[in-house]
Design a protein around this nucleic acid. Structure first.
Lengths: 223, 223
DNA sequence: GACGACCTACCCGTTTCTGGGTATAGAAGG
DNA sequence: CCTTCTATACCCAGAAACGGGTAGGTCGTC
């Protein structure tokens, strides 16, 4: 087993790439207390600069960064000298769609995290990523079959929208009203509402604003 | 005068950096018909790669790009060997705020364009940028004092939000309702609505979705 | 002082969204 | 076969947003 190389997944060198100071503080504290050594940078460019110096076992990479995006940074890391050896785990402040996930796969990511998540789960995912060989890109969190819980907002899984839902969400993010979308898709306005509501439930959005945020941040709608 | 070097601002070498194919097509056609030589790339990274090869007099740079942002690209161009000689004009698919404009100044941009704009205006702005010395960063479009026209959506000027308006818009984009924003800012809910409506009027947004789009694309709200 | 821009606050009415429900039909999968 | 997911469509009621308007008070400028 690969686990033999890293019995309990401890003492790994981890490079945290995030521009949100509070999240950096929290995550680095959690990881440090788990005996990991943590380096932090605030941008993809900075991450690439310090890659050789830090020589991380794992890079925790925010998808949304100022300047170079998380995906772009991931590609650069992959194509670097030590790239093939390094595990890269993407995480996003909002839920990740199948589309973004697919892009991440292409960019060479080993796994995904959705923020917020508990300390226990963060460590579990990190250890899982460290215990996994790079040729086995199955570190993605097990997708719970969509729990219709009262508050999917706090769910840890990866909400994936149905094609129809993404279609509707994209149009909502483009500024269309439900009536317009209904006309465009040639369905009843009520059905558009249903899709919109289903999407919002999964994403955990409570308003159009949060829905648009999600769409723009996850590439469902074109910026 | 510098105009002597380029009597009518024609035959300039222009590098167009944009990821929207239709806009690339349109702009490059317009510029080509004005006797400019145009090269096009779809990302900031690609722009930097081809900078020496193309040796442009002017770079037309989309603010919103996949991967490296327009501002980041601008900084890289500035710090390149030929950087000081090159004029950089930023343009955005949506209106640009004073904040984004200030960032552009810091990044070393020579001017701004707001899309959409007419062929005549595009050429005028490009020629203006080419006729301007780099130490004179006043190529920014004259700001019409806020025309309360029936459709500011098609206005060419640069809508600038008041501080209060930006504050409200940022909170709207964060997913807050007017009531919540009112509580946060300690003002009446109706006042929040007023600010929101004023902002929407200036931006040309017709819905929360468009407002959020604008906020995220222009750095008013944190992504 | 007059003017303009801004922030504040409120009025009105209409439209849209939000959150809950039900239901049918087909596709996918155990 | 049966269950689950999906897409479609509709119902309801309440909340929020939208699109107008008016209006007082402050501040800086011309």
């Amino acid at each position: 087993m690969i686990a033999a190389q890293r019995p309990e997944g401890r003492a790994a060198r981890i490079l945290l790439v995030d521009d949100a100071p509070d999240r950096v503080l929290l995550v680095s504290r959690i990881l440090s207390e788990a005996d990991h050594r943590v380096w932090t940078v605030g941008s993809g460019e900075a991450a690439l600069e310090r890659l050789d110096e830090v020589a991380p076992d794992l890079v925790l990479l925010d998808v949304v960064l100022p300047g170079m995006s998380g995906l772009a940074t991931c590609r650069h890391i992959r194509s670097s000298r030590a790239g093939p050896r390094i595990r890269v785990v993407l995480f996003s402040g909002l839920a990740i769609t199948s589309e973004t996930q697919a892009e991440g796969i292409e960019a060479g990511a080993d796994g995904y995290l959705t923020w917020p998540l508990s300390q226990r789960e963060l460590l579990a995912r990190v250890d899982l990523a460290l215990r996994t060989t790079r040729t086995d890109p199955t570190v993605r969190p097990e997708t719970p079959p969509d729990s219709p819980a009262p508050r999917p907002r706090t769910a840890i899984g990866v909400p994936i929208l149905t094609p129809r839902q993404e279609e509707v969400v994209a149009l909502v993010a483009a500024g269309r009203t439900s009536a317009e979308i209904a006309a465009l898709l040639d369905i009843a306005p009520g059905t558009v509402e249903t899709h919109r509501k289903a999407a919002m439930r999964r994403i955990g959005a409570r308003s159009t604003a949060e829905l648009v945020r999600y769409a723009l941040l996850n590439g469902i709608a074109h910026v």
